[in-house]
């Protein structure tokens, strides 16, 4: 028969609780584990950008740039496409947690339950960085020859991390306001389109006039121009400020939105 460890019950009885650092570590560990146990999604998130890059380099590349140098142009775009795609699964992970009852368990524990979202965000960052490294590795194999110094590499990495965090938090917020994992999944699609309407694959100047306005004013273009400039030495001008500004602004909105949505959502059921 079952016996539970003896304890004194009474109003003075209180349990210990985990520190914020431990809570975050536990939720990050959980999310990383969830990622590893969904190998199909993980492989898709890594394989898709690599396939896209190979396709753009070998299939379209010849038509876009007959000199065979297209791989130098397209790598930054592929990295961002990959980050946008990879972070969209955060919306699904978050919605799943918010709809299956486990959030109630976390919310009745004496911990900061919003850390469950932080866990998903950090896991997304880890997944996306892994995919980014693989993309860069494959790019080097197929002839990408960056000119960046160590500092430029680090700066590019910083911009990529900021971009991944921005989009992951945005998807976390989307996950918090959508009702079902399936619905959350479909939002990823919309944001997947943004890189195509930027300077990711072709220079903005080759687009029709009205589209140039859209493409040069949307947040992805400065991020791509910054990364491209850092890695391959093309002129950056003020694009770096625009890139950081856009990301910081969207990140701030996503954070506030997530926080409000978490509080509202969690208390509703």
């Amino acid at each position: 028969m079952m016996t539970i460890r003896q304890h004194q019950s009474g109003p003075q009885q209180t349990a210990k609780s985990a520190s914020l650092a431990v809570t975050n570590a536990v939720f990050i560990g959980r999310s990383l584990r969830l990622s590893l146990r969904n190998p199909e999604a993980l492989i898709m998130a890594i394989l898709l950008p690599i396939l896209l890059m190979l396709m753009f380099t070998y299939v379209f590349g010849g038509a876009i740039d007959p000199s065979g140098q297209y791989v130098h142009y397209v790598v930054p775009g592929i990295i961002l496409l990959c980050a946008g795609f990879g972070s969209s699964s955060t919306a699904v992970d978050v919605t799943q947690d918010m709809t299956n009852g486990i959030i109630d368990r976390f919310r009745t524990m004496p911990i900061s339950s919003v850390c469950v979202i932080t866990g998903h965000v950090v896991a997304s960052l880890a997944r996306n960085l892994l995919a980014t490294f693989l993309v860069i590795g494959v790019a080097l194999l197929v002839g990408f020859r960056p000119t960046a110094s160590l500092w430029e590499w680090l700066a590019a990495l910083g911009v990529i991390v900021l971009f991944i965090l921005t989009f992951t938090w945005l998807f976390a917020a989307i996950g918090l306001v959508t009702g079902s994992p399936a619905a959350a999944g479909s939002y990823g699609f919309a944001l997947l389109f943004l890189p195509y309407l930027s300077s990711a694959f072709v220079p903005v100047s080759t687009m029709p006039g009205w589209l140039q306005g859209v493409a040069s004013r949307q947040p992805i273009t400065p991020v791509i121009e910054t990364i491209r400039g850092l890695l391959t030495g093309t002129p950056i001008h003020n694009q770096a400020w625009w890139a950081v500004g856009w990301c910081a602004a969207i990140l701030l909105v996503a954070l506030v939105w997530s926080w409000a949505a978490f509080r509202r959502r969690a208390g509703r059921r």
Binding site: K16, L34, G101, D104, F106, M109
Partner: peptide, 24 residues
């Protein structure tokens, strides 16, 4: 809760250990 609040992707041992860590 009404819907078993367990993490389906984790094992029972992992679920219990996680809860233990969260409880300090």
């Amino acid at each position: 809760g009404q819907f078993a609040a367990v993490d389906e992707v984790l094992t029972a041992r992992e679920n219990l250990t996680m809860a233990g860590r969260l409880c300090g």
